[in-house]
Write a protein that binds this DNA or RNA. Structure first.
Lengths: 332, 332
DNA sequence: CACGCAAATGTGAACGCTAACATGCTAGAT
DNA sequence: ATCTAGCATGTTAGCGTTCACATTTGCGTG
């Protein structure tokens, strides 16, 4: 029956001031052991629990972070959120969650709602807010860390995977296996990560002396349906296609389906490489070769950065997490 | 630059009292249109944003629900949380998330932390708090809705899927396909849903006149590894096994692997049926036949129940969501 | 033309806590 | 005995809202 017991109730019963009780609750050492014991006893008797809303009003800290993701149902973001929550919990912070389905207006609404709730910081994952609006959005007193994209003016920092190198790993892997007609199912143009991956794609094409035609990038939705569509289009345009690199693993799964539908064997006829290595990747048939991301770590680092910032501790402006090629059956 | 602007700042600048500004912000009709316009203008100029922490202290409502799940990385709970957040957002509520990895102490800690944060309600998913401790835990002023298990004294309500019937559907499906040596990979004894599914299992065995030996239930961890272990044990004990029903889809995926490892073909030699129909189920090879759960709906209903309760509206004490058999290749 | 009534606005106080300072007390130094 | 450090505790004033009431204003009525 822990109900409406306040500091004052405890103070009165224990015969001390509210301030002393507050000190006990907050582990302030400046309390005589006997007094502390007495207060703790009364706290136990009365079942007192501090009211963090009142505490937050007084301290101007809520010990809460908000995290904005496109969709927690997407295993990628589930892992990122999990990492963030683990780190936050360890540091005494709690996590407010908001899904936006990649709708910029909903991202903005979420940020404002979080700010009104006085969160101590916000983690904005793979935002779809247009590049040009971002600085304005970030120009606020609430620290914001970005994930899945580069740092931009106004943000406390950014945490993302090394997609450039990841993409390179994937392409090189395919080239070494004598794949010569490689296609990139590139995700949504304008979407987070798209520009970076495209840049890497073209840089590589140039440096390797490839003629542009040999490296085709096809925009697509970042889910199985998008991958299926992109892959079947690619195979229609050029039946010689023997390698597909995908924006993420969900796209790759769709691409695999498209190949099979088109009568191609994976990996014999077409090798498929995914990205991010979600749990799913090792469970589908064939298991996906993929460029692994440290998703859990991503969430953790985002929280760590926020906490460092709040403590006025120096920290990187941008953290780039290593990617690694995980070779499975879809591109052995 | 939306910083520390308060109601008082707005009031002073607009030449009215804080109360009037408060009325405008809260859409209280008892304000002259001209006054309202003036106040709104100043709010715009100053970039005022209400401080919900202060508001919550005064109103004793935080417009926040806490949700406790074993692991958001598990696609089942990701869907439930997504459903809850969707419903909550639509009603102006926000969601605090906590993962517990099925550790009862962490569930208790989470509940307490949420209470200190004065959440308006808690959704406790598939709790592993021992049956006998549950009433004490629930005996609190914060409304708690349970999911994934039956209602228990003290809870506002419970929302869960009709596993009894679901399990029946699975078994009957296998029997109709002339499978005669059926095994149940039953999940963790004492875990949520375990008792209910076991009861259904035995009830069916009795009613169908089966001798107990023909329906074996094997406890296992509720993940692919658990399923793999349980299935390989079952096949070792009885090579005749031709049907495996699984606690959930992750277990089913493990069971499929075990079958293949043991040289059995799925579904020709052994038919495998999963439960809950996570997105993964249709993407593995072979695609899983499974008993579908309305996961998104589960989260939604939990929130709806909480909101009804807070509004002192009548509501069911227990909502049982229908399950349906989704037939795919693993048990055609 | 005073009267009363409703609509519009204002006035404390409260929500439960902490920050910052003030006070009282004990004990060692002088 | 007196002074003074320094520890333990108390006091006061917010934190930014809303609540419950009090007050003012405008307007139709007898």
């Amino acid at each position: 029956m822990s109900s409406r017991v306040t500091l004052a109730d405890v103070a009165q019963r224990a015969g001390v001031s509210t301030q002393t009780v507050s000190r006990v609750v907050n582990h302030n050492p400046a309390v005589r052991p006997e007094t502390r014991a007495r207060v703790l006893e009364v706290i136990g008797e009365l079942g007192y629990r501090p009211n963090t809303v009142a505490r937050s009003l007084a301290t101007r800290r809520t010990m809460t972070f908000g995290i904005v993701v496109p969709d927690i149902g997407n295993p990628y973001f589930a892992d990122v959120v999990r990492g963030a929550e683990d780190a936050a919990r360890g540091l005494g912070y709690q996590i407010l969650l908001c899904n936006t389905d990649q709708m910029p207006e909903r991202e903005l609404t979420a940020i404002e709602a979080f700010q009104e709730k006085q969160v101590d910081g916000i983690i904005l994952c793979s935002t779809r807010i247009p590049e040009e609006d971002l600085p304005d959005t970030l120009r606020t007193h609430t620290p914001i860390v970005l994930t899945g994209r580069e740092w931009v003016e106004g943000a406390v920092g950014a945490v993302h995977a090394d997609d450039d190198r990841g993409l390179l790993l994937a392409i090189k892997h395919l080239l070494q296996r004598e794949r010569r007609n490689i296609v990139f199912a590139a995700g949504r143009p304008g979407g987070p990560g798209h520009a970076r991956r495209m840049r890497a794609w073209h840089e590589f094409a140039d440096s390797a002396g490839y003629c542009a035609e040999q490296l085709v990038a096809i925009p697509c939705a970042t889910n199985p349906a998008g991958g299926q569509e992109a892959a079947s289009q690619a195979l229609r345009d050029n039946p010689e296609v023997d390698g597909i690199v995908c924006f993420n693993d969900l796209v790759a799964i769709g691409a695999v389906h498209a190949c099979i539908e088109a009568g191609k064997r994976v990996p014999e006829d077409v090798a498929v490489v995914g990205m991010t290595d979600i749990a799913l990747a090792s469970l589908v048939e064939p298991p996906l070769t993929t460029v692994g991301h440290a998703k859990h770590e991503l969430g953790k680092q985002a929280v760590a950065m926020l906490v460092d910032h709040l403590a006025s501790r120096a920290h990187e402006r941008e953290i780039v997490l290593k990617t690694e090629l995980v070779v499975r059956a879809s591109a052995p």
